[in-house]
Design a protein around this nucleic acid. Structure first.
Lengths: 190, 190, 190, 190
DNA sequence: AATGAATGAGGTTTCATTCAT
DNA sequence: TATGAATGAAACCTCATTCAT
């Protein structure tokens, strides 16, 4: 009969706890996770959840933004300031980085990007815009061929995004990385 | 006391009516469609639905199989029997065919392949196996390079599958087809 | 452990059962009554309630219409067809009828006409229009004085409506009827 | 580390601030107003509210008492000390005074006197007792007829109370006042 | 084989009130 | 005295599935 013990935290800390609890559960169980589960995992009352998120979808959106920002911060794109960039090498590195980042977050990807939620709250263009920027930069540097950046970025992103799911599904990690790198390099080769 | 005069149909015909009603609705409204909607569209009672499908997911699975079979029947792969096959041209043709087929079925793709259902009932390998077979055949004919067929097929399929969604999202159809063809040809080039 | 036994009724019968269950409870407990209570009293599942009423307020509205119609049917206004009408006597009779009708339905009146619901779903003019019609008819017959029918009808209705609450609150029934009859007759006297 | 610099007020002043904030909001929004809204308007923390009022209903009760007292103070009844009182004229004056007082406080009337709160915390007899006293005084002065003071006061009060709502609902103010004055004078006429 | 009324678990959301700080 | 984060019971509502007819 241990009392739950009401813990008072700063709003930011409490919000972070809820987000992290959700992240943990989503990782394991994908979109089967419900508010009920998250509050149990976070050790808070149901009302507390809605104190920080107007609705369930708002939590997912927060999580999605957080994830995007985390990837961008962990893997910042190289800039020309420190000398010329080896764009094909950037592609190789990006392929491996994405696969490892997303493989460690299995269910989240499903719940945030391949679920009914993704349909209800369409994703922004962030990732695709970023990829298109790389393509353009590479083209200007003469490292890439004359492909149409927008549609190509979108298709390449789909392939990149599929890779960690292939690995999760049992495909060999290194073979998948190699196949993805081959696909990226060749598609963009001059 | 006029009895409702129930239409007596063969089980196959009745089942097909339900499937087609679902197909029509899913096309327009994606995974928002409910059992209620389907039976209204099909003009049958709710109980009848469950006479033919143990559960909602079973209908979706039936629909998925049907769609796959329909595509395979509409776009049969060429065989060597009538002389050598121009594999790169097959790729080009496949890209256009897939985009047009799936563009005409927008919401269904979402509901069957990019929803919580897809997570609950994972898709078989059919499409990827088929693509891998093409790659292998092309390699044997000396038309494709030495890529690893399985992971490559999976990544290419992801790109192919994204293309109609790009078009639905406003991307130019021809630019998308061109980008996809470029991606396929170059990835598999010798 | 007696099974609840699923009873199949015609929609009208089932709807009526729910309405009557609500009526019974509202009578005793006023606006404290909730969906939960009504379904228990009616012996149906919660979902059944929402099968017949999109929302709680819709049940209350149905009940309100039903009550109004019931009163009108039970106490139809006299018409001139069978000879001249004694309008002042109609007033006396109406006063008594209303008090007895509403006294037998205490809590309902509160829940439907003097609660937050009444604020959310404002009442139509039905009762007041009916009273104004009586006033006008009496005036034309020379039985009533030259009061302004609309505002007078509204004020008189407020007094009429208060009477059963006075009785419910302990006031003597006959003294209240007498006071109300006096108020009506004198206000409208020529 | 600047402390929030809490405004120290005397308990009475702080309580009055809360009451007045509630009054302002209730006036505009009726019983839709919540504790949350009141504390924001008053510029105090939520806990502070419950420091001064054990419950929400206690605030409403305080407000109700305050309103009653305010009306009594603003419109004190005439006494015989300065000579005989013209009781019928008092009625006329009272009708106009009440309508104007309550018209300026629309939502409050609803929230305090015609809501679920009014059911939970029944109103005292104050207003009715006051009106009955007028009737009796007028009767003693020979200005009013031999009606039964208690039930009549209650019914008249209902009519008086309805008048400002009629005006709020679009009825002409002067026509309403006239109708009410007619009702009062005639009902009580000798 | 067919119906459609009925179910009830499951979900989101609200808000007066409490209590650690 | 004051704060405001936290609570949790209770409300409304949905919808795949069941089952009496």
């Amino acid at each position: 009969m241990d009392k739950p013990l009401r813990r008072r935290l700063s709003p930011e800390a409490r919000k972070r706890e809820i987000v992290e609890a959700a992240e943990r559960l989503l990782q394991q169980h994908g979109s089967r996770v419900r508010v009920e589960d998250v509050v149990r995992e976070a050790g808070v009352a149901k009302g507390t959840f809605f104190l920080y998120f107007p609705s369930w979808d708002d939590l997912l959106e927060t999580l999605r933004d957080r994830l995007t920002a985390e990837f961008d911060a962990t893997y910042p794109l190289p800039t020309e300031v420190d000398g010329p960039v080896d764009w094909p090498a950037v592609l190789d590195w990006l392929a491996g980085a994405y696969i490892d980042f997303a493989s460690a977050r299995q269910g989240i990807g499903q719940a945030l990007f391949h679920s009914d939620f993704a349909e209800r709250r369409p994703l922004g263009d962030h990732a695709i815009v970023r990829l298109a920027a790389i393509i353009r930069a590479g083209q200007e540097a003469g490292a890439f061929g004359a492909v149409d950046p927008e549609p190509t970025a979108r298709l390449l992103y789909a392939a990149i995004d599929e890779a960690p799911r292939a690995v999760a599904g049992g495909m060999d990690r290194n073979a998948t990385v190699a196949a993805l790198q081959n696909l990226l390099r060749r598609t963009l080769a001059p």
